[in-house]
């Protein structure tokens, strides 16, 4: 069974979307004061790096950037074999910070729920805002993104894949339709 795939965004498209998101973050937060970036592993951490770079280029400011692994907070443990764990690296305090939580694809919202719990265990941020590259719908929890690269209507049987190069730069985003 081979799958059919269409490209949703190529590297240029991803770059434009991240540039826009970066501007929106600065605009909404009126600058970089108390702003920190936290990417969700794996995928969101690469994108948060990318946003870090763009904001540094626009503003000349290096925001604190961290990565969070939500495996310990998943709600589907015990349903399948224990998923591989990655490290959480947030080398700064979250207390009183405006956290930009970054993920690649927003889908059911369960990952974000887990990430919110994980962040709360690590400190007390002033606010948490969510930035995603793709929102593919099908939410199962009352969660929405503050910054969206692109809204893509999908069916549940489809899959959205973000392809990164070895440096963590997003090369393309593909919609995969299983051929049945």
């Amino acid at each position: 069974m081979s799958d059919e795939s269409t490209t949703l965004l190529d590297a240029t498209g991803v770059g434009r979307a991240l540039t826009r998101i970066s501007h929106e973050i600065l605009e909404k937060n009126k600058g970089t004061q108390d702003l920190v970036l936290v990417g969700i592993r794996t995928g969101g951490d690469h994108l948060s790096r990318d946003i870090f770079n763009r904001i540094r280029d626009f503003e000349g400011v290096e925001l604190p950037v961290g990565a969070i692994d939500i495996t310990m907070y998943r709600d589907d443990l015990g349903i399948r074999s224990a998923p591989q764990m990655h490290s959480t690296e947030i080398p700064f305090s979250l207390d009183g910070k405006n956290v930009i939580l970054v993920d690649d694809v927003l889908y059911t919202g369960r990952t974000i729920r887990a990430a919110l719990d994980a962040l709360m265990d690590l400190g007390r941020p002033r606010s948490i805002q969510l930035a995603v590259l793709i929102d593919r719908g099908h939410r199962e929890l009352p969660i929405r993104a503050d910054y969206v690269g692109r809204n893509v209507p999908t069916s549940i049987s489809e899959n959205v894949e973000v392809e990164f190069d070895s440096d963590g730069t997003a090369l393309q985003i593909r919609l995969i339709k299983p051929r049945s």
Partner: peptide
């Protein structure tokens, strides 16, 4: 504890969760 306890060794549960397409 995580690797042993975070897994479910019941085959039927594993299969049904796969068919529901559970992802993170």
């Amino acid at each position: 504890l995580y690797l042993v306890g975070g897994a479910n060794n019941d085959e039927s549960t594993i299969q049904s969760s796969q068919s529901k397409g559970v992802t993170a």
